[in-house]
Amino acid sequence: MLFMKGAPQEPRCGFSRQIVAILKEHDIQFASFDILSDEEVRQGLKTYSNWPTYPQLYVNGELIGGLDIVKELAESGELASTCPKAVSLEHRLKTIINQSPVMLFMKGNKEGAKCGFSRQILEILNEVAIDYDTFDILQDEEVRQGLKTYSNWPTYPQLYVKGELIGGLDIVKELKENGELKSVLQGES
């Protein structure tokens, strides 16, 4: 967690800008808090950390330090072992796709589809009576946009079986009409 002035996309001081640049350059995964947005946190954190200046970088709840310490860690090569690396979008997508043998990326979830196509595909999958999980693309814009590129499939819903893209609603309807859907969902075809 980086306590800084401003946000990573718009730092409000040179020190914050430099520390963000170092963290990004080293693919460090981090969240941030704009101390200019909350005077109580700004003053309280100085006391809590016994560190009078900003930015302040914390890893697993422990203060690492400010810009000078982060620079030293980067120069010595210790920054990577001190801070968690950012997970690539491709790795994240593969993890989500493979969290269940049958995975449906849709608008909404099993309990409530948020578009007609998603509603229709849920009805078809529920008829087949096979276990599947869903991922609501409306909750994560990075996944929503990234999966379109990753799968080379521009629309939703998208159905995956054992990590492989089957297709969208039209393909699922076609498989159902041809009597092939259950075997495809079981990974037999």
Rank of each mutant, 00 (worst) to 15 (best):
P52R: 05
K24S: 11
G187F: 12
Q145W: 12
E40V: 15
T95Q: 14
Q56G: 01
A21C: 01
E180I: 02
E180V: 04
D170Q: 06
A86S: 13
A129C: 13
I35Y: 02
L57H: 07
A21P: 00
P55M: 08
L169M: 09
L125I: 04
I22W: 11
G61D: 03
F135Y: 13
L159V: 14
P157W: 09
N126M: 15
A7V: 15
Q158R: 08
E123Y: 00
P84N: 05
E174D: 15
D131H: 11
I35K: 02
L104F: 10
N126Y: 06
K5G: 02
K107C: 07
L89M: 12
D133F: 13
W51M: 10
L73H: 08
I137W: 04
M4D: 01
E188P: 10
L57Q: 07
S81T: 15
Y54R: 02
E174A: 12
L57D: 06
L104I: 12
G14Q: 10
F15A: 03
L67D: 02
G66Q: 01
F3C: 04
P101H: 05
P8Y: 05
G187P: 02
Q120P: 05
V184L: 03
N178V: 00
Q158L: 03
K162R: 11
L185S: 05
T53Y: 07
V161Y: 01
D136R: 08
P154A: 04
D170S: 08
S16H: 04
Q186S: 13
E62R: 10
T95D: 12
K162V: 00
T155G: 07
M106A: 06
R17D: 10
I124L: 06
L159M: 10
P84V: 10
A31E: 15
I137N: 04
I96A: 05
E188T: 11
S118Q: 06
G167A: 02
P8V: 01
E72F: 00
G187S: 12
L2Y: 01
I130N: 08
L122C: 14
C83I: 08
L169H: 07
F15Q: 03
G61Y: 00
I28N: 00
E177R: 12
V41G: 05
Q56M: 03
L104H: 09
D27A: 13
Y160H: 12
R12E: 00
G61N: 00
T155S: 09
E111W: 05
L165E: 11
G146W: 11
L122A: 11
W153L: 09
Q158N: 08
L2F: 02
E78S: 10
G146V: 13
G146C: 11
E39T: 08
E174R: 14
M106P: 11
G108C: 07
E39F: 02
L63A: 02
I137G: 08
E180A: 10
I166W: 04
I22C: 05
E90Q: 12
P84Y: 03
G65N: 04
I97A: 06
G14S: 11
L175K: 14
I19N: 01
S37Q: 15
D170K: 00
F30Q: 13
K114W: 00
K46A: 06
M106S: 11
N126A: 15
E78Q: 14
K173Q: 09
N60D: 15
F105Y: 02
K71E: 03
M103E: 05
I69L: 09
I130S: 09
Y160I: 13
T149S: 15
N98T: 11
R12Y: 04
P55I: 08
T95V: 09
T47I: 15
L122I: 15
G77F: 06
G163W: 08
Q186F: 10
D68T: 13
